[in-house]
Each structure stands twice: as C-alpha cells, then as structure tokens.
C-alpha cells in the first residue's frame, strides 16, 4: 500500500466513510461588503496608517512626475527583469490588479506577466494603479475572482511595507521586502505613464 492510500484509508476509517461516499455541500460562503464610498480616501488613509505613501494624480503625465519624484534619482526596474537584475536596483515599479480600500492593500496576479520579485527584492516599491482598480475589500476580489489560481500561478496581497517585530516587539520596516511603498493612483488613464 502506498503512503497515499494508507493515509486516505486511515482517514476514511477514522471518519467511518467509504471511498466515494457523497459529501454534502460546505456551509454557504460568507463574503462581506466593504465601504461603497470614498474608496480613494479610505485606501489612502489605510495605507498611510501603515507608513505607505499615496499620491492621487489626474493624468498619466502627472503620474510620471509623481513616479520621478518618488524615485528621487534611484535606480529602478519597471514591470519585468531578471532576478539578479532586480536584486541590484533600489526601486521596483509595478502595476496592480486590484487595490483594497479598507486595508490599503495591493493585489497582484502573476498573469499580468510582471516580475513578482519587483515588489519584493528592492528596498522600495512603487505601484501605479488606475482609480478603477480600487475595490472595497478583499472579499470583493474573491467575488470577482472565485478561483484566483485559474489564470495565475500566484496571487499576492500586499498590505503595507515589509515588517517585523521579532526583536523586543519593536516594529521595524523593510526586513526582507521593501520598507518603502508608494502607490500612485491615476484618475484618468488615456495614456500609460
């Protein structure tokens, strides 16, 4: 008997079940509604409370100005790069698939074909998103995307800068991931920044 069959048969014996016994449906999914108004303001307040920076701009041109200002002359890679290249730069610039108003989070699916390490390896992460990407809460993402793995190998939810409190419970940002996060929200996207 393989380990697989042994584990499964032990589980069935423990539960007094037979192979192929029917399973009743699980309890109905519980998904909450989030805030419906002032999503940008809520997102901004939530991320700023975590020491993230948020800039709201009207156009793509203004977004470019905001990116430059956040970069402040530092080296960067945008969208994709090799692992070793990303490990060398100071800033990673990405988009995001959703942003969550209630928690100030960014949600990124790998199907966008951006390097996932861009939001992770450099000490600073800049995300440029359209206003329409902001939803109320994580439950909205699960409503829109009930199977997050259908088209992406990974979905990552990022809520503020990387942090630890492992030494004397003192909060330190930027332990492994970025200690600095900027989110630039564009009102009107007629042209990519």
């Amino acid at each position: 008997m393989t380990s697989r069959d042994e584990i499964l048969s032990k589980a069935r014996a423990a539960l007094s079940r037979n192979t192929g016994d029917p399973v009743p449906p699980p309890p109905a999914v519980l998904l909450r509604e989030g805030p419906t108004e002032h999503l940008v303001e809520q997102f901004t307040a939530a991320l700023e409370a975590l020491a993230g920076n948020v800039v709201v701009v009207k156009t793509c041109e203004e977004a470019q100005v905001a990116v430059d200002k956040a970069l402040n002359g530092r080296t960067f890679i945008r969208s994709t790069g090799t692992r070793d290249a990303i490990a060398q730069v100071e800033v990673g610039i990405t988009s995001a698939d959703y942003a969550l108003a209630d928690t100030g989070s960014l949600v990124m699916f790998t199907e966008s074909n951006e390097s996932r390490l861009l939001s992770l390896l450099p000490p600073c992460h800049i995300a440029v998103i359209e206003r329409s990407k902001i939803v109320a809460c994580l439950d909205d993402v699960f409503r829109l995307r009930p199977l997050p793995g259908a088209r992406s190998s990974a979905m990552v939810v990022i809520t503020g800068p990387s942090r630890t409190a492992d030494i004397e419970m003192r909060l330190v940002r930027g332990v492994h991931g970025p200690g600095e996060i900027h989110v630039i929200i564009i009102d009107d996207v007629t042209r990519s920044p």
Binding site: R116, G149, S152, V156
Partner: peptide, 21 residues
C-alpha cells in the same frame, strides 16, 4: 492586524509567460 502584510496564494509552479516564480 486587519490583514497581514503578505498573503501569497500559490497555485503551482510558474506558468507560461510568467517572468519569475
């Protein structure tokens, strides 16, 4: 925390077209 900083939902190895993973 309302949400932890990073939640990774990982469904298999990297797929066609994905640059890393």
């Amino acid at each position: 925390q309302p949400l932890s900083v990073y939640t990774s939902f990982l469904a298999g190895a990297k797929r066609e077209g994905e640059p890393d993973g």
